[in-house]
Amino acid sequence: MKEAKTTEMVKNASKKRFKVKRVSLQLYSMCIPAIISVFVFSYLPMVGVILAFKNYKYSKGIFGSDWVGFKNFEYFFKSKDFFVITRNTLLLNTIFIITGTVAALFVAIMLYNVKSRAKTKVFQTIMITPHFLSWVVVSYMVFALLNPSYGLVNALLSKFGIKGIDWYSTPNAWPVILTLFSLWKHVGMDSVVYYAALMGIDSSMLEAAEVDGATNFKKTIYVILPTLIPLITILTILKIGNIFRADFGLFYQLTRDVGALYPTTDVIDTYIFRTMRVVGDMGMGAAIGLVQSFVGFVLVIITNAIANKIDPDAALF
């Protein structure tokens, strides 16, 4: 009797072990397409960063081209472009982060105060729509507003007796224009996350504040805002981690790649693109790309470590 029971148990155990193995084999097999795709299109290009140390010749290929050491980097760091594009990238991204966060917070908190669910939904839907347009389409809108011969802005200016401005050759206006359109495109989507967090606020806290006679303004400052601070911190830190990466479409399409605007709108990503397409210097472009990737990598690691200290749950890894 006893023996039979143990053999039964052993059988069951091995059956179970077999089943666990079969389950995990099936699970692993599900991962294969994604793993291969990421390997080919994300990891293989990493090998290509050796281009940064080479004088790339099309005929010789990546591996056959001659090594030039750090010459590409040296050339880039010594050029005057280095300062301009780094300044533009950092400055504009900083402006985008600050204005974007403030605007998204404002919209989310105000939306939270709207009591009618139907209205909230309509407002939110409208504000999200620009997110789903390509920068090419947005560039048409910008063109419709700013185009020097027919544009709406110049028409308005002339009504007030102000002479029209040739916007596409006025670089100083573009940090403002780009910021406005970046806000226009992203504010709805960015506010969704904050709004969702607000929906999680314990309403008894707000009711208690109300009983204590807090005004709506005070409720916002002392109850609502503090609950969002961890989220604001984390999202901002993550954005700072990406501060060296510019939104290529925004800078390339909206400016219509007009050379006169480069002094204020040329960023690392557009510069790399031109190095590749116009200048045709692959080694140099790869070198700038490597610098960007590397600095971005270090920044994300640092900012993530900070996030980890503030709130371990909010850190990415």
Partner: peptide, 9 residues
């Protein structure tokens, strides 16, 4: 976190 970049790709 890290990518090969436009040109190697």
């Amino acid at each position: 976190l890290f990518s090969g970049g436009l040109i190697p790709t």
